[in-house]
Amino acid sequence: MDEAVSVPVPAGAPSPVRVLVADDEDDIRALVCLAVAKAGCTATTSVADGGAALAHARAGQPDIAVLDVSMPGMTGLDVCTALRADPATAGIRILLLSAGASSDDVARGLAAGADAYLAKPFGIAALVRQVRALSAGQPA
């Protein structure tokens, strides 16, 4: 199920921002990967469920994780909480994507330790802005 997309980095370039994308919807996962690429992030790994996201985050130590909230099994919120609880992964910047758009949903996402939250459907421009801001090390 895992689908790793690695783009070779030209020698001498600054080390690229590594992004982990997790969404169970193939079309949306691809869309998020395109937006992440538009934001200038070239090293992206994408997975289709929460368990794989957590495993990849622990093994690969990405800079940014873009997680869908409603995934079967381990949800994006669960992954977020697990990453924050482990000192080895606590520093990963996390952007949550969710179809829940109420203020409760946002509050739950931020309480789980997310740095930013985007409601579906998100504009590509907005997603690109968020990823750029997170890769620059600032909350958007």
């Binding site: 869309l31 395109l34 937006a35 409603s70 829940g100 579906k120 459907p121 590509i124």
Partner: peptide, 21 residues
């Protein structure tokens, strides 16, 4: 229903935005 409709709409609007831009 809201969740199930939002997901495909996310795809439709997202890819449209890519094409239009």
């Amino acid at each position: 229903i809201s969740h199930e409709l939002r997901t495909p709409l996310t795809s439709i609007l997202g890819y449209l935005e890519l094409v239009l831009e």
